[in-house]
């Protein structure tokens, strides 16, 4: 006699079809929202300045592409974003490791860093404008500031929670300080660094919009601001949609795979989306 086991339906369903079903459900939700939005426009009866229809937004998107505005603004924003993210992450890791490893550095810098952490980048941007004027320097500084703290604190956490037994084992085998850092502390801190990077990347995206609104003459943040200033609200909405889609793409193409390749690979966390 053979025993038969019935697997749950979800387990037998191929992964691709489950993903497709999830994408389709998500697309259906977006489509429903767009239809409701379009239908509500004649009911609300306001001018496109106050309440543009999705068709106005699509027309505005095509117009921005035709006139070459959107590609240039998008490229400007992405250049600033990745430059700020890279510089902020690098500084965060360097300071996080230095503070985590050296007590004197920790005692000297901790109060100052805690004080600066409490001041949001929004408060710094006006003073950056005074010091560095409108433009790239101010935006980059704002982004570096935003990324620096989450990366620093998560790196610090990773360094301080590095297994002491590994550090001691390496030291007893005659490893140099660099070798202890390279083979025990940095690998232990990597999940923390990745977490900090992901948090910082999200913060930087929000910071970018604000910095561009205040201190730029180009970029998606500037487009959002300029749209309302010139009574082209549809352009503002195009900027918002581009921002949202860009973040989704960055998360999907870079941050999530990076997290999977590091943190989840070592069993430290589980992707929330896989559980749903």
């Amino acid at each position: 006699m053979t025993a038969s086991v019935t697997l749950p339906r979800a387990a037998t369903q191929p992964l691709v079809s489950r993903r497709s079903a999830r994408v389709l459900r998500g697309a259906a939700g977006v489509l429903l929202l767009l239809v409701a939005w379009q239908l509500s426009v004649p009911l609300v009866g306001l001018s496109p300045y106050f309440y543009p229809a999705p068709s106005d937004v699509v027309a505005s998107f095509a117009d921005l592409i035709r006139k070459g505005i959107l590609p240039v603004y998008f490229a400007d924003s992405m250049g600033r974003y990745f430059a700020g993210l890279a510089a902020g992450a690098l500084l965060g890791v360097v300071f996080g490791v230095a503070i985590g490893l050296n007590r004197t550095v920790a005692v000297t810098l901790s109060p100052l860093l805690k004080f600066l952490f409490a001041i949001v980048e929004v408060a710094w941007i006006p003073i950056f404008v005074v010091w560095f004027g409108y433009g790239l320097k101010t935006i980059l500084l704002a982004l570096i500031y935003v990324v620096f703290f989450p990366v620093l604190y998560n790196t610090l956490l990773g360094v301080r929670t590095a297994p002491q037994i590994l550090v001691n084992a390496l030291r007893s085998l005659g490893a140099t300080r660099w070798q202890v850092l390279r083979y025990a502390i940095l690998p232990s801190a990597l999940p923390g660094i990745i977490t900090g990077l992901r948090v910082g990347a999200g913060f930087a995206f929000r910071g970018l919009v604000f910095a561009e609104i205040v201190a730029a003459k180009s970029g998606i943040g500037y487009l959002i601001f300029e749209g309302t200033q010139t009574q082209q609200t549809a352009r503002t909405i195009v900027g918002m949609i581009v921002m949202g889609l860009t973040w989704l793409a960055i998360d999907l193409c870079y941050l999530r795979p990076l997290e999977r390749a590091t943190i989840q690979r070592w069993g430290l966390t589980v992707d929330a989306e896989q559980r749903t």
């Binding site: 590609p71 793409a249 999907l252 193409c253 870079y254 795979p257 990076l258 999977r260 390749a261 690979r265």
Partner: peptide, 22 residues
Amino acid sequence: DAPSLRVPVTATLVVIAVLAAW
């Protein structure tokens, strides 16, 4: 070889290809 990093590498190559075409 790392399936999880295939997506970022492909995305980067696509971006480079688009920039080159541009």
